[in-house]
Amino acid sequence: MQPKVSSMSSPSFPTKMHIEPHSSGAANTPTSKEAKMRAANLNFFYGSFQALYDIDLEIQANRITALIGPSGCGKSTFLRTLNRINETIRGTRYTGEVLLDGVDVKSQDVTALRRRVGMVFQKSNPFPKTIFDNIAYGPKVNGMTSKQDLEVTVEKSLRRAALWEEVKDKLQKPASALSGGQQQRLCIARAMAVDPEVLLLDEPCSALDPIATLKIEELLFSIKDQTTIVIVTHNMQQAARVADNTGFFMLGKLVEFDRTEMIFRNPSKKETEDYVTGRFG
């Protein structure tokens, strides 16, 4: 029995927002009106250290947005403001606005926000639980109780993460028994299990071999018609391969943000060109 993968709404999440299907015609520029998320005048501070300066950036719905730049440039910090996970670090604050569907994320209930804006981390971080319980955890904390619903959701999420065939016979085994690449796909499946509208990925492939990386990139392509994706990556080829739009960060500033092919073929800023051609970074 295969549950309908394309069905977006699951009965337990009645607050689910409907995602506009994007017009696949003309190439959208990053400034089109379909912004799923948007940062405006964003300044971010760790204590007295300013990590981000005046970031203005729009994340288009159902597109993959890549954020690139040298280490410490603020791209991960930016990503982590989108689901307010930075708040868990003491002494952080920001000025400016981060909007989800036009609504300030600060004004929203943080658990509801994070349900809508999921996250996958640099190092795969499965819980010390079984494979099944890893995936079922998100739906459970969001109020899904029926065993049958959970089973359907777990299977659906694992299928979306292209992991079902590999793990369907060992759902009750500890997640730590999986390989590194499988663990990271498990973490993506776990994030997908609560039907997020936006999925944030913080260097998800940095610890993976090329084949595992390729699988994750394919996975991103397969879910982007349902989910808006933002990926931070060190790997410029990865950004070039997967992203529709790319932003280049340096020293806490957004140097350039454009369609990916423009960033890599015809950047308008000298710093961007130096970075993408490997002259530094």
Binding site: I85, A112, R114
Partner: peptide, 21 residues
């Protein structure tokens, strides 16, 4: 820290993250 963040990022409350994870 990633264990806590993984739970919080799924929409768990602080208490759920502490107790469950």
């Amino acid at each position: 820290r990633e264990q806590r963040e993984a739970a919080l990022a799924l929409g768990a409350t602080q208490w759920e993250s502490t107790f469950d994870i």
